[in-house]
Write a protein that binds this DNA or RNA. Sequence first.
DNA 1: CTATCATTTAGACAGGTTTCAAAGCAGGAG
DNA 2: CTCCTGCTTTGAAACCTGTCTAAATGATAG
Lengths: 118, 118
Amino acid sequence: MTANTTAACCAPIAREPLAESDAAELAGLLKAVADPVRLRLLSMIGSHAGGEACVCDLTDAFDLTAPTISHHLKVLRTAGLIDGERRGTWVYYRIVPETVNKLGALFAPLAEPELVTV
Amino acid sequence: MTANTTAACCAPIAREPLAESDAAELAGLLKAVADPVRLRLLSMIGSHAGGEACVCDLTDAFDLTAPTISHHLKVLRTAGLIDGERRGTWVYYRIVPETVNKLGALFAPLAEPELVTV
DNA sequence: CTATCATTTAGACAGGTTTCAAAGCAGGAG
DNA sequence: CTCCTGCTTTGAAACCTGTCTAAATGATAG
């Protein structure tokens, strides 16, 4: 179609127009992380020693009630970004790297902002 | 080859807990792209020949009214993800790579040993 | 100046989100 | 068994979003 003279740059999102179905799926994932509390939860879980974190640790880090934290964890779990398991009294969550990678792949390699000027 | 080899693990989000202020800023950015229409708009603008796209092209690709598209473009513009300019009759939008890179840097290097060598 | 096309703004409405209090479940301790 | 603690579910209130129609603004042509 075109000369495509600026090929050495583009993140997937800027390489070709996103298909409608892909956009819908990715938007669902992005909605799950597009919240300050859930971003911090995801970060806390992912950076916790052993790769997993107990809900009790997470709840104490916020000025929010336990049901609210539980709700946010459910959103992340439903989106497939985290996975939870009960061991005895406590419930532990860990990250699902495959799903997180989908997000990374979306915007990732947008190289240096040295684009061809107009 | 031992000079700061980014290990096969951690995206910034999984390296250390996100600060509250960073989480708020990033969540704002993510909210702007967490919509199928806006994702496709961003992708269309970024992948368009010349690095910019006219609103008229964008509007025709959706089953939505012009005001709705305009609303979504405003959200992307307010978030700093795109930048618009009027030239004569038409308004042209282009991507702001710096802002998009912030998103790429968040989830990017999580466990995928694929190296960018282009 | 008037007509017309392209885009944005304003106002309104249905539907979804975030949050909390209260109640419900599941394990462990006494 | 009974109680207590950790976590989830439910139900409801306040708020935010996506979409539309109608109207305003900007630019160009006649």
